[in-house]
């Protein structure tokens, strides 16, 4: 029996070269690497896996059915990409991003990224140097778990895992995964916790013994709510907690250009005649917001609510007193 890599490449080349649809049996007898000694059921399982592989590689296989058998045809229009016209800067950016992240174990999709780059750029165009360390503390398995969870999100399979929260309490969870996102060194999962009957966010670095439901892998376990959008769950550090408050922050004219970068799509920005910019944003933890203002400063000011200004004043007084 041929090496599975050779067999799959042979199958791809064969389907692409055939002008008429071919059956599984024709593929088996074409010398592509399927064993003649294999029983029918085992061959068909292997053939199915090989077709799945080809689809995952971007090959679109059309299924042609008649009364007697099912046959398969390579769809060149749906499979081949038109050349993508990239500017020099876009190409360089793609190469840098891919070079940095494809080799970083904290990035869950490194293999796919490397192959995608191979499809988009020509050989002979080495990019600038780049590196990445996305996940905190190097790789602690976050990348692998994030990859498995992203796949479970895509296939809509439920997952189970053990989890230790910030208070050190450990518990098992059974979750329908809706999305994954990354922030400052940590990957997070958002999903519907079946036991709690509530939507929750979990830090993937705190998970252990992650299992994706292996039963009926092609049948989804749940429906994701149509209005779910992972971007709605990316919050700023001061937006966690209960009781939303309207806050207003002012960026001085010299740093007004930073506002768009710092707000990360949250709230609304409005320029003032003097060149400064005000940011109206929802906050749930005014002390954390006051800390954020200091950390991201200088030239960023608390405006409203008065409790925010007071939190900042109280905190700064305490700093001065402690260092007197």
């Amino acid at each position: 029996m041929a090496d599975p890599v050779e067999r799959r490449v042979n199958l791809a080349l064969y389907l692409a070269s055939c002008r008429t649809p071919v059956t599984a049996e024709q593929c088996r007898n074409a010398g592509l690497g399927y064993s003649e000694d294999q029983d029918e059921a085992a061959f068909l399982r292997m053939f199915e896996r090989d077709k799945e592989f080809l689809r995952a590689a971007g090959i679109v296989i059309e299924v042609v059915r008649d009364d007697e058998a099912e046959a398969y045809r390579f769809d060149p229009t749906a499979s081949y990409a038109r050349p993508v016209e990239l500017t020099d800067e876009e190409r360089a950016a793609l190469k840098v991003i891919a070079a940095a992240l494809a080799a970083d174990p904290g990035f869950p999709f490194g293999d796919d990224l490397a192959i995608a780059l191979g499809k988009l750029t020509d050989a002979g165009q080495t990019g600038p140097l780049a590196a990445a360390e996305l996940a905190a503390g190097g790789d602690d398995g976050q990348g692998l778990r994030a990859r498995a969870l992203a796949e479970a999100v895509h296939t809509r399979k439920s997952v189970t895992f053990g989890y230790t929260n910030q208070r050190g309490e450990s518990k098992s969870h059974h979750v329908d995964p809706y999305g994954v996102f990354f922030r400052e060194g940590v990957w997070y999962l958002i999903g519907q916790d079946r036991d709690l009957d509530a939507r929750r966010t979990y830090a993937i670095e705190r998970m252990r013994d992650l299992d994706v439901n292996p039963k009926r892998p092609r049948t989804p376990d749940f429906e994701r709510p149509e209005d779910f959008d992972v971007r709605d769950h990316e919050k700023l550090p001061f937006q966690y907690g209960t009781g939303a408050l309207a806050a207003r922050i002012r960026f001085e004219p010299d740093v007004a250009w930073r506002a768009d970068r710092l707000v990360r799509g949250h709230g609304t920005l409005a320029p003032l005649p003097d060149g400064s910019v005000v940011w109206d944003v929802e906050a749930r933890d005014l002390v954390r917001l006051a800390q954020w203002i200091v950390a991201e400063g200088p030239a960023i000011h608390a405006v409203e609510p008065p409790a925010l200004v007071e939190a900042l004043r109280t905190g700064l007084r305490e700093v001065v007193d402690r260092h007197a």
Binding site: A12, L13, Y14, A16, S17, R55, A56, A57, G58, I59, V60, A78, S79, Y80, A81, P83, A93, I97, A98, L101, F107, P108, F109, G110, D112, L113, I115, A116, K119, L120, L134, A150, H154
Partner: peptide
Amino acid sequence: DPPGLDRQLKLSANEARALVAALDTA
């Protein structure tokens, strides 16, 4: 020339996801 597949294939779902996630960072 190779006996087939001499043009690049479209990006698969996983490859598109990888690119979107990577480009997000920048």
